[in-house]
Nucleic acid binder design. Sequence first.
DNA 1: ACCTGTCAAGTCTGG
DNA 2: CCAGACTTGACAGGT
Length: 318
Amino acid sequence: MKVRLGYVAIALNLGKVTSSSTVTYSRYLKMNDNERLEKLKEVTYSNLQALEEILKYNINHNIHFYRLTSHLIPLATHPEVMWNYKQYFKKDFEHIGKIIKSSNMRFDCHPDQFNVINSTKESVVKSTLINLNTAVDIFELLDCKDGKMVMHIGGSQGGKEESIKRFIDNFRSFPLRIQERLILENDDKIFTAKDVLRICNEIKIPMVLDIHHHHCKSDNENIGDLIVDIFNTWDSEKLPPKVHFSTPKEFENDRKHADYINPNDFIKFIGLVKSKVDKDFDVMIEAKKKDQALFKLIEDLKMINKGIKFIDDTTFEL
DNA sequence: ACCTGTCAAGTCTGG
DNA sequence: CCAGACTTGACAGGT
């Protein structure tokens, strides 16, 4: 059984390099027409350069998967701006797309929490649709066919059952290009792993298990009973199942992420999975120290050993 | 150089 | 019905 490790969005080892620079709308309003377009292009260019640098860093460190920032293109979906970034950066996207493809890197994104598929407000669902379409546009510009969007179910207005029904109805009303790229994750407040599994089975899309969220909100469900079915939601996918792992900051079930990963908890979890299912899978490390936390975990795992055998920088077998 | 408040976007709670 | 919490990084403006 092979397990690969990855991290989220920001490479701290690269210092100030960021692919999430922004132009805020209030800042934008203070500029004249020329300055506006110049600024948007300048920031976008710098974000794309940074993304390329981060991807090369990932490749150099044998990191096989990565989550793209949701701030790559400033104001791309703002209703009063909606500028045509595609027209200016087609070549740059193509170039970066080739880097991703040549390294065979798994490449996902996680639209921000104000995207709510099951919102009771039509305006929110509408802007969510715009944002998700833009995320798909970016995948397509990168020619990234396997890129997925990780989302939560959303709010619970009118009760959980009603909210689930709203989610499924709205999901089915979305264009296929979005449906095909959506994958769903259990959250830390409302929808448990079992809830999300049920939804994923009904609409036939893969589920990402977030084990930290599960500890925050589980309704006493036992993850060992669910893990086989969760992994099975990936059966018709090219990519292996994906799991998010983080260590709580202050106390057990603290929703905030700690700087680093507790290696013993990590080993315990991996052991639990192994006892239930024999499938390769990917673990996304979500920690404040990002890539540094990933590398520290790897060092810790090598030290503790416990039958974990690394077969490349970020992949181990057990 | 360092610190602080603000930023397009949602949801939920509690007054 | 409204204010504040939740929560994250970037950035502008102040010291």
